[in-house]
């Protein structure tokens, strides 16, 4: 109750909704046996992250999150799952490594606690606007798109061009990997 009074109620509601979407979806991804259901849970997590993006003034990235992740990547996952027909074959109950799950849980708990502990001991916030925006504040809405675009096409232009090459290489590589080797058989 005190927390809800200390901070603006809408932002608390948005955070709780985003956290519920993210955590429910993430637990679904790691626990559901059917890969199709896991992919649908992944969509839920991605929507939750998009909500968190919008709540934190990253409007363009939220749109890209929905279009690229939920729209393209998850559909690619579903396409491969149905293409291969691996619906219910994973042996989740088989345990080749003894006590793998408890060890993984311990390792994850240690890692997450270390991250949270480090963050709680650090202080980054100086209140001074950073130099990347020329001293102006981070904007919302369409101004955010403008700021991000200006940043990518000036400061990060080389990295942006490099991603173009990366995407071409990835497409060519995927085609080469997934192609049947019929051409070689016919030639020989």
């Amino acid at each position: 109750m005190m927390l809800a009074l200390a901070y603006a109620v809408p932002s608390v509601i948005v955070f709780v909704a985003a956290a519920a979407l993210i955590l429910t979806g993430a637990i679904g991804v790691i626990s559901l046996k059917n890969p199709v259901h896991a992919a649908l849970s992944l969509i839920m997590t991605l929507f939750g992250v998009a909500v968190a993006f919008i709540a934190q003034q990253a409007d363009f990235l939220a749109a890209v999150q929905i279009i690229v992740y939920a729209g393209a990547i998850v559909v690619l996952f579903l396409f491969v799952i149905m293409f291969l027909g691996v619906d219910r074959r994973e042996g989740v109950d088989v345990q080749p490594l003894v006590s793998q799950k408890p060890l993984a849980l311990v390792g994850v708990v240690i890692t997450v606690s270390a991250i949270i502990f480090t963050m709680s001991r650090s202080s980054w916030v100086t209140g001074v606007p950073s130099l990347s925006l020329g001293g102006t504040r981070l904007a919302t809405g369409s101004h955010n798109v403008k700021q991000l675009g200006t940043s990518i096409f000036t400061t990060y232009l080389f990295a942006f061009e490099a991603t173009a090459a990366l995407l071409i290489i990835a497409v060519v590589g995927a085609v080469l990997l997934a192609r049947r080797e019929r051409v070689l058989e016919e030639a020989s």
């Binding site: 934190q56 003034q57 990347s132 504040r137 940043s151 990295a159 590589g173 995927a174 080469l176």
Partner: peptide, 30 residues
């Protein structure tokens, strides 16, 4: 951190992470 520090560099990094993730998923699923 982009919001906290009022720095657009964080959002630009997310943009590039998304591009690399798309490429990674394409090749990985291949």
């Amino acid at each position: 951190f982009s919001r906290t520090l009022s720095d657009i560099g964080g959002q630009a990094s997310v943009f590039f992470v998304m591009v690399v993730a798309a490429a990674e998923v394409t090749v990985g699923l291949g």
